[in-house]
Amino acid sequence: MNELKITLQINGTPHELTVSPDQTLLAVLRESLGLVGAREGCGIGMCGACTILIDGQAMSSCLLLAVQAAGKTITTIEGLASPEQLHPVQHAYVEHSAFQCAYCTPGFILSTVALLAEDASPDDDTIRRYLAGNLCRCGSYANILEAVQQCRTMAQAQDAGEG
């Protein structure tokens, strides 16, 4: 197949890449760029382990071709924060031990970031529904809910402060 030259805007940096037309964005992130926080769990968009943000929306990178992402703004878990300076959502996940094997965790965290961008104060049902596309086989859902509830409380406190 003819290879294509594309530019992907990832975590604020443009990357010029040569990809084949059938390469998934997930494969390019992991294999060409070493961004291994996105993971293949099912390969068919059911588990959410490969979740990334495209223009702020949570998407399954296993279902996207790399060429489809050209010209869009891509955020992976590596772009959210560093281990030294965690994002508030990551802090909440740590504080509530909202993971076990953590293979699914970057996906959950990015979905949480997308949720909070849409609705800073989601109720519990909204959280459950929004995160239903991310699967945690270890079964840390109760802790994940508590972590997101903490993010909600922080947002509400901020609102109250500003109000």
């Binding site: 291994v36 560093s82 281990p83 990551q90 740590v94 993971f99 953590a102 293979y103 970057p106």
Partner: peptide, 14 residues
């Protein structure tokens, strides 16, 4: 924990 929430855990697949 920081590695687990930043995607840095060195799983075998990596």
């Amino acid at each position: 924990a920081a590695a687990r929430v930043t995607g840095a855990t060195p799983y075998g697949v990596n």
